[in-house]
Computed example of a mutant assay.
Amino acid sequence: MTIPRIGQGVDVHAFTDTADGVPLHLGGLHWADSGGLDGHSDADVVAHAACDALLSAAGLGDLGAIFGTSDPRWAAASGCTLLTETAARVRAAGFEIGNVSVQLVANRPKFGPRRAESERILSEAVGASVSVAATTTDGLGLTGRGEGAAAIAVALIVHSGE
């Protein structure tokens, strides 16, 4: 009997000062909004949460352990680069990826108009279906105050040999 495995991932990053000129990357996309997210890589919370969900499902650790800030190879890396590498590691560990679902929690940018574009790019990076939904927290917490963005993801995988 094939038993699917699920994993979940969460990522949160603070917005930088708009004067810093850091670009905003979210859901594998570049956004024209000024003031990106602060992080070692591009701080794409959507891609990072998807990575953690896949790694968790496969029992391979987490984003920080694999792409940690002490490793200069991943400095300024795109979320899609990390996601492609994560998917390769999950497959190398003997798993097939069923799908990934991500919930973005942020006041900006307006994600809906570019949802399909993001899902296509992230699905290409994973080599399986990735869906993305977005919501706000109605003014509550760091995302509601516009101080940062968060994402929560789940991934479904199955062992190739089961």
Rank of each mutant, 00 (worst) to 15 (best):
R5D: 03
G7C: 11
Q8H: 11
Q8V: 10
Q8W: 07
G9P: 08
V10C: 00
D11P: 00
D11I: 00
H13P: 00
D17S: 15
T18L: 02
A19W: 01
V22N: 06
V22S: 09
P23W: 10
P23F: 08
P23R: 13
L26T: 03
G27M: 09
L29A: 09
H30R: 15
W31E: 04
W31F: 02
W31Y: 03
G36W: 07
G36H: 08
L37R: 12
G39Q: 12
G39R: 12
G39C: 09
H40A: 14
D42L: 07
D44M: 04
V45A: 06
V45Q: 07
H48F: 02
H48G: 01
H48V: 09
A49R: 06
A53V: 10
L54K: 03
L55G: 01
A58S: 09
A58T: 07
A58P: 01
G59L: 10
G61W: 10
G61L: 12
G64E: 13
T69L: 02
S70I: 08
W74A: 09
A77W: 09
T84Y: 00
T84G: 01
E85R: 15
E85L: 12
T86S: 09
A87W: 02
N99Y: 11
K110V: 13
K110P: 02
G112W: 09
G112V: 10
R114F: 06
R115C: 11
R120I: 11
I121F: 00
A125E: 09
V126Q: 06
G127K: 12
G127V: 02
A128L: 05
